[in-house]
Structures are given as C-alpha cells and as structure tokens.
Design a protein around this nucleic acid. Structure first.
Lengths: 153, 153
DNA sequence: CGCAATTAAATTGTATAAAATTTAAAAGGT
DNA sequence: ACCTTTTAAATTTTATACAATTTAATTGCG
C-alpha cells in the first residue's frame, strides 16, 4: 500500500473514462450537435455556422475579435468560416475604416431574413430531446458557470 | 401579438446564445480540452488520442467498433487516429482471425507503459481547474445522464 | 448451395479547431 | 518623426469529426 495521500488505485480510478468530466462534456457536445444536423440541413448551415449566425442575429457590425470572444473561437477557425458565410451571401466582411487591422462582420438582407427560418429550430430540438425545460435551464446554468471557470485568459 | 402558445419574443429568446444548452456544452468542451494541451504535450498525445488510450488502458484487445461505441466516434475518425497511434508504437492493429471484417486494437508494451506517465494528469488538471470534487462528480453524473438521453441509435 | 442483405473498416469530401507563425496596421514612448 | 511593441486577421500545419459512399467479409434465408 502507498503511504502518500493518493493511492495507485485512486489514480487509476481517475483515469477511467466514466469518471472524466471532460470526456462526458466532449461526447455530449458531439452527440447534441448531431441532433441539429437534420434541422440545420434544411436551412443549409453547419452547427458552427449556425451558432455564428445566432451571435450575429443578436448583434452584428462587430469585429472578428469580438465575435470570436462570444463564440470562444479564434481567427484560425473564424476566418475560413466567415469567408464561407460571405460566399453564401449571408454576411459581408469589410475592413474597419478607422482601424484597418479589424474586419467588421455585418448581416446581409438574406442573412437577416434567415432568422425567420431558424426560429422554429430550438423548439423542434427540445421536442426530440425528451428533456424537461427545467432540467435544460439548470444544467445550462451550471455548465456556463463551469465554462467561466475553465476559460483561458 | 400572436395567438398561439409561443410568442415571437419567446422564440427570439430561445435563439440567444446564452440560452442554448448545446452551445454551453460545445464551448465548455473546447475550453476544457485546451486545459489538457500543455499536460498532454509532455507525453506527446492530443486530447482525442488521450481518451482513446484511456479507453484502451481500461480494456484493450477490442474491435474498432467496440472502441468507437465507448468513445462515441466512428471509423471515419478512428481509422486515421489509430493508424497514427500505431505509427507511434503505442498500439497494434490486426484483423480478427475468425471475422476478417473486424480489426483488433491491442496495446504494445510501450502503450501500456505510457499509463504510468498519464497517472498524474487528472490530479494536475483538477488542481488548475479550481472546481471542487463534489461539483465535478455531480456535474459529470448529470451530463452523462444527458448524454444517454441525446445519443443517437 | 446461391445470393441478397447486413456488417465492419476504410475511404472520400467537407468543415471545423487550434497552435504557431506571418503580415500589416496602430499605439506608444523617446 | 523614429522605432519598438502590441494588436487583429490571415495563413500554415496538424488533427479531428462526421456524413456518405465504397469495399470486402459474413449472415441468413429460400
């Protein structure tokens, strides 16, 4: 037997997949995203494109930097994604006049109108999830709390 | 005003990022994975490679199918990942003798030995997360429950 | 047996992710 | 004004993810 605080058995238990919070979150994220696939296919968006549009429907005319902060994504992911949304006619990308380093993202008429088509998605998803609204709300709050704790500076 | 059960305002609220459980889980998963990066770099694994090794340390001599079921990953992701682990000398890939369709994944001596180097990772991560063990346990249980509810057949 | 249906991996194509580096612009101190 | 530092995007590289399809082996049914 070990004489330290933590035994080999305890360290072994910590290495089990079923004991890992991060793995549960990781697997859950991918499975939930798959639920969106058939609904998002109808409006021609991927999940990441969808959350980017959600952010822009709340507030557009923002820099890539600000958008990235809200989505927890950096320019390495956003630049090609935004170019794709631009080629689909949903957004425009233009250099900020006062600061040429920044790129301003704005919704086009078509991009704004897509919100109407997206309105039914959350309710449809809720319907097929089989989870109560209370459970969703409380779990979302706790995971958001966790997110603020683990987010990097 | 709408006469139905759900108003436009309520549907708009559902489209806000901060109200989306899936987005919270998605962002949280990526931020937590980033915490692992410096620790995993020391032993030369990515996060997905790490969870694959975790699964194999619990039980190896398994098919790609079984491994995929435990990791919620399909052959499209696992095949290249397992080829990489094989090229690193951590596992072997061999066709099952009784059923040539299946591929059996087994740990090499080097792959088994890596477990020793990984033992300290969960505790180190817990240390830098600033979350209590109780919170981790209860949250993991609830997310695992959610995972079983949203997992596709 | 003979063959249609099923199954397990692998492959193909598209889209993320993120670390690390590069480029260009702006800020700030001297 | 000059130059070092900082900052915002973009680029490069590597590694996932996954839908959809293909390939090859096995099953199961008449």
């Amino acid at each position: 037997m070990e004489h330290g605080n933590v035994s080999d058995e305890e360290r072994d238990a910590a290495l089990k997949l079923e004991n890992q919070l991060c793995f549960a979150v990781y697997a859950c994220s991918r499975e939930m995203t798959k639920l969106y696939h058939p609904l998002l296919k109808e409006i021609g968006l991927t999940y990441t494109q969808y959350v980017t549009m959600l952010a822009l429907w709340e507030k557009d005319q923002v820099t890539v930097k600000e958008l990235g902060a809200r989505l927890y994504l950096d320019s390495g992911t956003l630049t090609p994604l935004l170019k794709k949304l631009e080629s689909m006619g949903l957004i425009t990308r233009s250099r900020h006049k006062a600061d040429e380093r920044s790129v301003i993202i704005a919704l086009t008429k078509q991009g704004t109108e897509m919100k109407e088509k997206a309105r039914e998605i959350p309710a449809k998803l809720y319907g097929q999830s089989g989870i109560s609204l209370e459970e969703i709300h409380s779990l979302r709050q706790r995971i958001t709390e966790l997110l603020t704790k683990v987010q990097q500076p």
